[in-house]
């Protein structure tokens, strides 16, 4: 047995122990730990009005909705944004995620929890405000900024919406440019137009109205004025409305702002 190491002294034993094969933890260990302590996010691939999207869900709620070409890309993007990793989940989606998925098509986020932990207070305020915009209506970026008490921060509000981690659920597609054009979107302008169309806001008609200089519509009988999509948008509605190019003009004509869409500050 000349090949076996010598164990006649401590050094021999130490060497033999040091040569024991390296042990690697099983792949199941880390995910199991992270799940048990509630730190693991998992993802599902689900259909949506704009094609399949990946939906991530973690201990704090829905953490990311993204349209990417592959799971690997989605996982990479998730890691980049949240600084932690994510696992696919073979189990059926939990109730919170099933609810979210059902709503992807309807743009209704009531009762859903979102993981906005990495966001600033300002970004959270912008995203929460966007949640208030009903289906079938749109608001300008300036409206969001004003509503959260930061009327000067229009551009920052736009940036915060562009970085919305959960588009479709927090309906940033319902926020449009203040000049009436549809504007950019996380999933592209085309997707934004398609989504708005589905929700009953024909983007071309909206842009045509804005191009003709109209920003607000007034109810002549009740003497109040609204954003064009307040209560829904249609050509029929337009027929009976007084058209204003600015809030100033509406105020001067003796109209007060609508209490639902709050088109401008009362002056």
């Amino acid at each position: 047995m000349k090949q076996t190491p010598s164990f006649s002294d401590t050094l021999g034993v130490a060497r033999a122990l040091g040569r024991l094969p390296e042990v690697r933890a099983p792949r199941s260990l880390a995910p199991a730990v992270l799940r048990r302590i509630g730190l693991a996010d998992t993802w599902w691939r689900v259909p949506s009005p704009i094609g399949d999207v990946f939906v991530a869900h973690g201990p704090a709620g829905i953490s990311l909705v993204l349209r990417t070409s592959s799971a690997a890309r989605f996982e990479r993007e998730f890691r980049l944004r949240h600084g932690r990793s994510i696992l696919p989940d073979a189990r059926p989606a939990p109730r919170a995620v099933r609810a979210a998925i059902a709503r992807l098509g309807r743009g209704d986020a009531s009762g859903l929890r979102f993981d906005l932990r990495g966001k600033t207070e300002f970004e959270r305020a912008v995203l929460r405000k966007a949640l208030e915009i009903p289906r079938g209506e749109v608001r300008p970026y300036g409206w969001i900024a004003r509503e959260i008490g930061r009327p000067e921060a229009v551009r920052a509000a736009g940036t915060a919406l562009a970085k919305n981690p959960v588009p479709l659920l927090i309906p940033c597609h319902r926020v449009v440019r203040s000049d009436g054009r549809i504007g950019d979107y996380a999933f592209g302008t085309r997707a934004k137009r398609a989504l708005l169309g589905r929700e009953g806001v024909p983007p071309a008609a909206l842009e045509a109205l804005a191009a003709s200089g109209v920003r607000f519509l007034g109810n002549e009988e009740k003497r109040y004025f609204c954003l064009p999509t307040c209560g829904g948008f249609s050509h029929l509605v337009l027929e009976n409305k007084v058209r204003f190019a600015s809030a100033r003009q509406a105020f001067d004509a003796g109209y007060r702002p609508c209490e639902d869409c709050r088109p401008a500050m009362a002056s």
């Binding site: 390296e22 042990v23 933890a25 260990l29 880390a30 932690r84």
Partner: peptide
């Protein structure tokens, strides 16, 4: 950060 701790120590602790 805890996830990093898990990945850094899992081989050693499991071993």
């Amino acid at each position: 950060t805890f996830e990093r701790l898990v990945f850094e120590y899992q081989d050693r602790l499991y071993g």
